[in-house]
């Protein structure tokens, strides 16, 4: 049986305490929320913090405030979000993204904060210590070389969060709290395109909440590509959101997932959509932009060339859905099931 290395466990009741304990030795203290990312990583010795600060007991992190927009505590489970009526009704892109994360059992454990901070993934890295020893380790942990591209001077591990592209498309900001203060940043600014240093969060900061603006006038969607209908991380994904005035787009955001070390915004193409109606030609030109931007590497399931090609099709599907086309059959085939929610 895979077993955890030794660690010290501390259970704060407040964010303040958690931040203070984290500040004591931020280098080898890690936050434990749902555990669905960290615990496997610890068992594989990818991470070996000497102290875990368990956030389960911090009740303020588990709140959802939907009075104005949506403020989601970082400790809210993915299942709770999937079953939250307003998420389904107002932020369908987020609902589709979260509803396709991992499996129902893992969504009962995993939190929104955890998915936002999900460690970047790589088939050279998400391996046991002994396996990594067999390749003399890699740049991300204990080694020097990025085996994905041996000439690369930075780690190319892939951003695999489903929630973040959807949240960025919806204009999310996140709150970061440390012992020394609090700051709010646009979610897109939380990320850097570097597989090792993929978060701009400081080691002493706790991500406590993610906030979405009001959704009036917005439509949103999320298309995820993965091998199976369950379990798998995305190998390519697109989140799109647009505010409409009639059938004309006022503003739009398009974010690609799993084709870089961060969620990748398709900025220029999204800007071109402003003031336009979604014609097939326009959608094709946006899809071209996305295709060019996407840089999948050979470190996930599927071949990278094919993954890159599918970006076009995913973007087109997403935009068609925003336009109002009936995409249910295509989605069911791709997702391998009609996305469902228990009422």
């Amino acid at each position: 049986m895979m077993r955890l290395p030794s660690y010290r466990y501390r259970a704060p009741k407040t964010v303040q305490d958690a931040a203070a304990w984290l500040a004591e030795s931020p280098g080898d203290t890690m936050l434990l929320a749902g555990g669905t990312d960290l615990i496997p990583n610890m068992k594989r010795r990818q991470q070996a913090p000497s102290t875990l600060v368990g956030l389960r007991g911090v009740t303020e992190l588990a709140q959802v405030d939907d009075r104005d927009g949506l403020e989601i505590g970082a400790g809210v489970t993915l299942s709770a979000l999937v079953h939250h009526d307003r998420v389904h009704a107002r932020y369908p892109g987020l609902w589709q993204a979260v509803g396709q994360i991992a499996t129902p059992l893992l969504r009962n454990m995993g939190t929104i904060g955890g998915n936002i901070c999900l460690d970047t993934r790589c088939t050279y890295y998400d391996q046991s210590f002994e396996w990594r020893q067999a390749i003399n380790f890699c740049m991300k942990k204990d080694g020097d070389t990025c085996w994905v591209a041996t000439s690369s001077d930075k780690c190319l591990a892939v951003s695999s969060t489903d929630a973040a592209p959807a949240l960025i498309a919806l204009g999310a900001t996140v709150r970061l709290v440390s012992a020394t203060g609090t700051r709010d940043v646009a979610l897109t600014d939380l990320y850097a395109n570097d597989g090792m240093h993929y978060l701009t969060r400081r080691a002493d900061e706790i991500l406590t909440a993610v906030t979405l603006p009001r959704a009036e006038g917005w439509r949103s969607t999320y298309w995820k590509l993965r091998r199976r209908g369950s379990f798998d991380f995305p190998v390519a994904a697109v989140a799109a959101a647009a505010r409409f005035d009639g059938d004309r787009i006022v503003e739009a955001r398009i974010v690609l997932g799993a084709v870089a070390s961060r969620p990748l915004e398709v900025l220029a193409a999204a800007a071109r959509l402003a003031g336009q109606t979604l014609t097939d030609d326009l959608m094709a030109s946006v899809a071209d932009d996305a295709y060019t931007l996407a840089k999948p590497m050979d470190n996930t399931d599927f071949e990278l060339v094919w993954r890159k090609k599918t970006v076009r099709s995913l973007v087109t599907s997403a935009l068609r859905e925003l336009r109002g086309d009936d995409m249910r059959a295509a989605r069911t085939k791709l997702a391998r099931h009609p996305l469902l929610v228990i009422s």
């Binding site: 088939t123 998400d126 396996w131 199976r228 369950s230 391998r336």
Partner: peptide, 16 residues
Amino acid sequence: HKFPSILEYKSPTFLD
């Protein structure tokens, strides 16, 4: 072995 794990060795799920 490219991926000696039950996650990356793909076997069909209930939905597949």
